[in-house]
Design a protein around this nucleic acid. Sequence first.
DNA 1: TGAATTCCTATCAGATCGGTAGGAATTAAA
DNA 2: TTTAATTCCTACCGATCTGATAGGAATTCA
Lengths: 151, 151
Amino acid sequence: MLSQRARYAIRAMFNVAPRAEPVSAARIAAEEAIPRKFLEAILADLKKAGLVESSRGALGGYRLARPGDEISFADVLRVVDGPLALAPCASRTAYRQCDDCRDVETCETRRTLLAVRDATAAILEGRHFGPSGDERPAACAMPPQDARVDS
Amino acid sequence: MLSQRARYAIRAMFNVAPRAEPVSAARIAAEEAIPRKFLEAILADLKKAGLVESSRGALGGYRLARPGDEISFADVLRVVDGPLALAPCASRTAYRQCDDCRDVETCETRRTLLAVRDATAAILEGRHFGPSGDERPAACAMPPQDARVDS
DNA sequence: TGAATTCCTATCAGATCGGTAGGAATTAAA
DNA sequence: TTTAATTCCTACCGATCTGATAGGAATTCA
């Protein structure tokens, strides 16, 4: 599950993306119904990660640090929620071996989690805040199956 | 991220799966290095969900409620960690509309999260507790790209 | 100078997570 | 019929995470 922070972050990015002028946290907060102080904290993280830039003082605010179509959902989610992978041993940079791992190379569970990570990353890296909207989600998405009962 | 519960649950299922006779929680706990009382709680959930059966008393223990190749990772993970989807609005049965959703049908964020859910579900539903081991992970997995920096 | 803004630090209540504790109920074997 | 092994039930607990809130210092522009 995405955290509330993550959902706010995505919404905020969509708010900032199309603008020519910097926009204040207060304004984003009002337009997106996000608690202002909470949003400030999120924007601080996005700034530290180099996704947005800020200017202080009157007329200050936030803008994208680079074109929207060069910033993906994956970029944002990693900043606020951390690695996409379902387990440290299935992460490609935040990799950490399981304490009790018998054999990293042949672990079938890990292999499965890596497949999930790669599929997830591929989709999330294909979705941008671009001015040009975006391509359809997914090379990788399956058509919903009727009998699929789940979540 | 998977919870510790989820990782324990998967390991426990792999321990139970190949056995002819019921196996006790104490034994699984010892073999898999899982705190016994904690494992008991997890097995109770798996039982309630109909994935394992139990018998009490001496010689009691747990066994699969149906053949291992009819129980998927997805089944187990949903029991212990809840829906696979990254957001309630992207879940196919635990669906819940976002409070502030402008238009469910056209929400591009939701569309993306649905794609992620479907890809994830497809992989996790394709991995079973065998006896026949299992098919390779993923129709859907992408080959790891060298320059991919992430997690 | 005044108003609008980012930025910094601190705090907090509630939920979740990972685990522990003790014992009642049940069952098979000795 | 006792004994040992087991599931099952209820309760608890500390640490961490989550989703905020509070107050104000520093900066910038009109």
